[in-house]
Each structure stands twice: as C-alpha cells, then as structure tokens.
Design a protein around this nucleic acid. Structure first.
Length: 225
DNA sequence: TTGCCGATCTTCT
DNA sequence: GAAGATCGGCAAA
C-alpha cells in the first residue's frame, strides 16, 4: 500500500483536486475494509472562495480546514447527510477538496449493506443497489464508507488511520487505465455563490460520477396564516 | 426520464 | 429563523 505523502496535499486545492482522481480512499472499521477509487471531486479555496464553508472565517464546525493538510474535514448537512473533504495547502489557508463520488473497489458487500441498511422498510432483495450507485454522490460516498463527524480531523496520510488515501497499486490494471482516462472539469454542484468557476473535476464517461445539479433556493415552508 | 417534494437538524445571521 | 457543498420516493409526461 502506497500512502500519499502530506506534500501532495500541501498545494492549492485546484491542483490537488484533479490529481486525486484515480486515487483510493480507504476506510477501515471492525466490520472490514471498504475502498473507493475517487472519480469526482470539487476544489474549494478557503476564505477567498464565497462557496466555501471557510468563507466567513474559522468556526468550531470548520476548524479542521484551518489546520494542516492531509486531514479530513467532515461536515453534517441537510439534517441527515455527511460529506468529506481533504484539507489542502497549509495551516490557515482553509482550502480543501470535496470528495463527491467514487467507484467501490474493495468491500463492495459491506458498502452495499451500509447503503441499503439505512433505508428502513427496504427489501434488500428487491432493492439491490447498482454498483455504480454505492458511492455516487458525496453523502452516498460517506454512507458507503461509514464516515461521520467522528472522523473529522482524521489524518488521511497516516498508516494507522481509520481513513486514508493511497495511490492505486503500481502496475495494477486499474492504475494503467486511470492514468489514461480523460479528466473533465465544470462548475461545482449545488452552490449559490461562485457557481461559474470550473472547479469540479471528474473522469469523463465514468458511470459513478454524480449528476450535475445547479443550485436551487429552497422554497420556504408554507406557514398557515 | 424528469421534476417536485419532504425529511431533518446544525450552523450562522 | 432560514438556508444548506443532498438524497430517495413518487407523480407526471
């Protein structure tokens, strides 16, 4: 296993993001190991980026982003979902890369059980998830890997870490393919500010990439007069 | 297949 | 008090 060195992350997130495509994210628990090959990511540029959680400065929630590179920033959103980022550049820069989607390459059955298990009343036989949907989207990826706030701050560059990133094994067929795969870029998903910058990167034609959705302001809940 | 809608709660204004 | 780096179910087309 070749872990990615911290230097890799000590660069602007715009540069790190496309380089992360094809890398493997590993999550180890007592239940077993699940790994995904990253197929879609988004770069966020800290306090200079109005779409970033760090835009308005450091808070308890986003503190990890202001720390050293190579660590995981995990946040909770929409009342039910977790999403994971990897911190880039240096202390105080608060830049990061959001991991939006991946292809499960290890522990597929465990990943599938986690994804199906969180839907009460679902018949596992009837609703067998397609492999491509296991980690297709930032919250789904976190579900498949059992990532929550307890992993906020986890060091992705440490061998003993419950969450780590490695390069695909040199010489493996997947590596050979990933190096030749074409990378596309475009606007980031679901954000209201800086919606035009093409800081989302993905493998062209890869079925595990999530669908693009422009930001839509949520309608206010109807209040009875 | 597309599009609307609700779920559900933390975070910041 | 409102919106949010989302998702899955359901209805309509």
């Amino acid at each position: 296993m070749t872990l990615i060195p911290r230097d890799f992350f000590a660069r602007p997130s715009i540069q790190v993001a496309p380089d992360l495509l094809g890398c493997a994210l590993e999550r180890e628990t007592t239940a077993g190991l699940v790994a995904v090959e990253l197929t879609e990511v988004e770069a966020y540029a800290g306090q200079a980026d109005p779409a970033s959680h760090a835009y308005r400065g450091e808070t308890a929630r986003n503190a990890v982003m202001f720390g050293p590179p190579g660590h995981a920033y995990v946040y909770f959103t929409y009342g039910m979902h977790f999403c994971v980022n990897l911190v880039c550049l240096g202390r105080g820069s608060a830049s990061a890369v959001l991991l939006r989607a991946g292809r499960v390459i290890e522990g597929e059955e465990l990943a599938r059980a986690r994804r199906a298990g969180r839907r009460p009343g679902t018949d596992p036989d009837r609703a067998r998830l397609a492999s491509r949907d296991l980690a297709r989207g930032p919250a789904r990826l976190c579900q498949a890997l059992d990532i929550d706030r307890s992993l906020d701050g986890a060091d992705a560059c440490a061998a003993g870490s419950p969450l780590r990133v490695r390069r695909e094994r040199p010489g493996s067929d997947t590596t050979a393919r990933s190096d030749q795969r074409k990378i596309s870029s475009g606007p980031r998903v679901g954000i209201a500010a800086a919606a035009e910058v093409p800081w989302r990167f993905w493998f062209e034609g890869e079925p595990t990439v999530s669908a693009y959705k422009p930001h839509v302001a949520r309608r206010r809940k109807l209040v009875t007069p």
